[in-house]
C-alpha cells in the first residue's frame, strides 16, 4: 500500500511555477525524504497534500484513497512553522489540536514528555524559544500516536543536541513501523535518517526511489603515468569499465559500485611496460551525487 501518491502535481503562483508536474509515491513503513534546495517546492508540495494550498492541476491520494479531512486527522503534521495560539500554554494548545483530531486529552502529557517540554507545559507559547516551539510542534504531530507523520524541516531552529534528539526520535518512530515523510534541504539529514528519497529542484522531480538507488556510489579510478597517451591507449584494452576520460590531466576510469580492482589495473599496466605514477580509488560521494543531480 502507498501512504501517499502524487500524480502530475502542478502549482503556479502567477508566472512562477512552484511545481511542474511532480509524481511519486510513498510506500508504507519507509522514511521518505523530500530533498531539495530552498525554494524547490517541498513545502508547496506538502501544503497541497494538507489542503492549505490549492493545486493548479494534478491529483494526490492518501492511503490509496481520494484524500479527505478524516485522512488528515490520522496524520501528524508539522508544516513549515510551529503554528499555535501565542496566548495559550502548551497544554491549552494541545487540547485544541487533540479536539480537532477527535482525540482525548490523556496523551498530552506523554507527548510533552517525549519532546521534553513537560516542565514548561503551563507557560504561554509566546514565552517559548524557537527550539521549544519547534519541539512543541513535533509533540503536537505525535498526539494520538499516528501511523503517518509529516515533518517539514523538523530540525529547524534546534541546537545540535536537539537535532540529534529529533533524528533519533525519527529513527525510533520508524523502527515502530511508522511511515515518515520528511522535507529537508539538508542532505546530511536525509542521508542519516531516510530510506527513500525524492529530489526536487525548482519544481521538478529530479530523482525518486530508495536512497541506495538514487545515491548509488560509482567507483572512479584515477591513474597517471609519464607517457599519458600510451597509458590511455593501453587502458582502452581493459574491459568492464563504464567510462574512460581525461579530466584536468588525470585519466579517470568509471566502474559500477564495487567493480574497480586497483591491483589488476596496476599489474596490467606494469606487465605492458607502463609504470604508474598515480593510482587512486575515488568514490563519488553522497554530496557530489546530490550536486550532480541538482546542478
Amino acid at each position: 500500500m502507498a501512504i501517499l501518491t502524487v500524480d502530475n502535481l502542478k502549482k503556479d503562483y502567477g508566472v512562477i511555477k512552484a511545481l511542474k508536474g511532480v509524481s511519486f509515491s510513498v510506500p508504507t513503513g519507509c522514511v521518505f525524504g523530500i530533498l531539495g534546495p530552498n525554494g524547490s517546492g517541498k513545502t508547496t508540495l506538502l501544503g497541497i497534500i494538507m489542503n492549505v494550498l490549492k493545486a493548479t492541476s494534478g491529483t494526490y491520494k492518501l492511503f490509496d484513497e481520494a484524500a479527505t479531512d478524516a485522512h488528515r486527522k490520522k496524520i501528524g503534521t508539522l508544516l513549515e512553522t510551529p503554528n499555535f495560539y501565542h496566548y495559550l500554554s502548551a497544554v491549552q494548545n494541545l487540547k485544541i489540536t487533540a479536539a480537532i483530531k477527535g482525540l482525548g486529552e490523556e496523551d498530552i502529557d506523554n507527548v510533552l514528555q517525549t519532546v521534553d517540554l513537560l516542565q514548561r507545559k503551563h507557560s504561554p507559547f509566546s514565552s517559548y524559544s524557537l527550539g521549544m516551539k519547534q519541539r512543541l510542534a513535533i509533540g503536537a504531530a505525535l498526539l494520538g500516536n499516528p501511523d503517518v507523520l509529516v515533518f517539514d524541516e523538523p530540525t529547524n531552529g534546534l541546537d545540535p543536541v536537539g537535532i540529534a534528539e529529533i533524528r533519533s526520535l525519527i529513527k525510533t518512530l520508524s523502527s515502530k513501523g511508522k511511515t515518515i515523510i520528511m522535507a529537508s534541504h539538508l542532505l546530511d539529514e536525509v542521508e542519516k535518517v531516510c530510506t527513500h528519497v525524492a529530489i526536487l529542484k525548482k519544481g521538478d522531480l529530479l530523482a525518486f526511489g530508495s536512497v541506495k538507488e538514487v545515491f548509488e556510489q560509482n567507483d572512479i579510478v584515477q591513474v597517471e603515468a609519464t607517457d599519458r597517451n600510451a597509458l590511455k591507449s593501453l587502458l582502452m584494452q581493459l574491459n568492464n569499465y563504464n567510462s574512460l576520460e581525461e579530466i584536468n590531466g588525470i585519466i579517470e576510469i568509471g566502474y559500477n559500485a564495487g567493480q574497480a580492482n586497483l591491483t589488476a589495473i596496476n599489474k596490467f599496466c606494469f606487465d605492458n611496460g607502463i609504470v604508474l605514477s598515480h593510482l587512486q580509488l575515488k568514490k563519488s560521494n553522497f554530496e557530489s551525487k546530490f550536486l550532480e543531480l541538482t546542478n
Binding site: N51, D69, R72, L79, N83, F84, H86, T97, I100
Partner: peptide, 13 residues
Amino acid sequence: FRTNRQNIIDGWS
C-alpha cells in the same frame, strides 16, 4: 498565528 492553516492540517475542513 497561522493557526488557520494548522486547524486545516490537523483535520478540519
